[in-house]
Amino acid sequence: MELVQHLPIDNLVACHSCDLLHEKTALGKGEKAWCSRCGSLLYRTNNNAIEISLALTIASLLLFLFAQLLPFLSIDVDGNKTTIYLISTIDTLSQLDNVLLGIAGALFLVIIPLGVLLLDLLLLSSLYSNKRPLTLFARQLLLLIGRLAPWNMLEIFLLGVLVTIVKLASIAEIALHQGFWAFVALVMINLFVSTTLEPEELWQAIDKH
């Protein structure tokens, strides 16, 4: 315990995978620091990450609305045509007396992704505009975002859509609509944001206020 006094804590970082301490070194734009013992990522830097992420979050929210509310895809079996909307899948599930699957669908397709986007928007816009009262609440927002993040599975759902299309292609005619393409764009942007924005950067931004 006596070691603590001699160590410059603010200039140290502990590896999240193996706990080894490292001295922080300044990184250039886009560079990454790796643990010398287990090889895990220690930290990375990005310029303007907050501005870029805010812009992309607003774009994602619009795409999310398009994906939910515009026709997603239609299926044609011997002249029986149905067009589905993403939002209507949950309605169909809940009508089938399968409450649990309806809840799972609602959580994974709507509530969690929309929740994360709205929390991101609140947090990033308050950091961007330097609003004091919101920063008090920023810590809570970031904690909640961190807890929800592992359950955001839009890209996995997209692969599920592709598998469904291939499965049905032999028995029916499938047409993809605007909602589907908005969803594809949404997934791409989501993947980009998750590789750009480091939670540590947001914590440091909150600390500065």
């Binding site: 315990m1 070691l3 603590v4 160590l7 804590i9 140290l12 970082v13 502990a14 999240h16 193996c18 706990d19 080894l20 301490l21 490292h22 001295e23 922080k24 070194t25 620091a33 790796w34 010398s36 013992r37 220690l42 970031l142 904690l143 961190g146 939670p199 540590e200 914590w203």
Partner: peptide, 27 residues
């Protein structure tokens, strides 16, 4: 690469990085 002169873990130094936000601090 970050420097690594003393091969010491945060736990051995009496430190902890928060498991939620990652902030390194004395524990």
């Amino acid at each position: 690469m970050a420097g690594n002169r003393q091969a010491l873990t945060a736990m051995q130094a009496g430190l902890a990085s928060c498991h939620v936000c990652g902030k390194l601090q004395s524990c």
